[in-house]
Nucleic acid binder design. Structure first.
Lengths: 136, 136
DNA sequence: GCAATGTTGTAATAAGATAACGTCACAGCC
DNA sequence: GGCTGTGACGTTATCTTATTACAACATTGC
């Protein structure tokens, strides 16, 4: 059904519901939007969503977009190995593009290394207008 | 008194109060922390802080740290010309280091260009442990 | 059985941000 | 002067985002 590598992990009921909502949606969702979408599935409180999201992020199946306070399903099977991911976020259509660029990641690590900074997580988010929205 | 280039602009009373709070503090502050610090100066509502912050960010004198929901005074006089700034944020001591790296900025622009993405703003935030906190 | 651990549910609340309203000061113009 | 536009300011209420605290239940290992 879904070839996504991450899907192989076995998730709890709440986790798969949240994951399902995110994969169905083609863009990022806020925790509260997810909550609303899952009310029919028995979700009542934000915490149910946040708990599931925490785990999914930990598994590398979901990314958090800091500049949007929203979450998006990972679109690269192998991304969990590399925590240097960049996102291009279109401010018009809301679409998010996940990119892993080696040169970028390398430069970031270099900078951290130069400062003897023990890098744990990198957030790179590009805001702008995507190609298709520009012509329109 | 203060050589910082940005200080040359003339700010409104509220803007200078907020700017003052941020420059006094050696780390990032949340909007509500600023509010509390300025109660004695007549601040009563969050909006007073947010309005000032909006302007200060627009002027390039203050940066917003998306991954912290906090704000920090700009430490580079010339940063307003280049909106590709990176931050190294120590999760232990809370200190923030502002870095402008040409190679990094160039790569980001390259990626955006390759995708015909009209880049407006770039957020780069490195989370980890700074050198001094590692030895401690 | 029993402790340890982990998931779930629920309520309450904290923290972050904005909307909507009205007022005031000032510059530009007739 | 009188008019108008603009921008800062103040206040209240509200909205969105996230966490704390507590109790119940299931599963595993001893």
């Amino acid at each position: 059904m879904n070839e996504h590598v991450h899907e192989a992990m076995d998730l709890t009921k709440n986790q798969s519901l949240v994951m399902g909502a995110l994969t169905r949606s083609k863009g990022p969702l806020s925790a509260y939007t997810i909550l609303d979408q899952l009310r029919d599935n028995g979700f009542r409180a934000p915490l149910q969503v946040y708990r599931a999201l925490d785990k999914l992020v930990e598994f590398g199946m979901v990314h958090r977009l800091e500049s949007l306070n929203a979450f998006v399903a990972c679109s690269h099977p192998g991304c969990d190995g590399d925590n240097t991911i960049a996102f291009m976020i279109c401010e018009k259509c809301g679409q998010v593009n996940e990119i892993t660029d080696n040169a970028l990641a390398k430069r970031v690590k270099q900078l951290a290394g130069d400062a003897s900074f023990a890098l744990k997580k990198t957030t790179i988010e590009l805001r702008g207008i995507c190609r298709t929205c520009q012509v329109a």
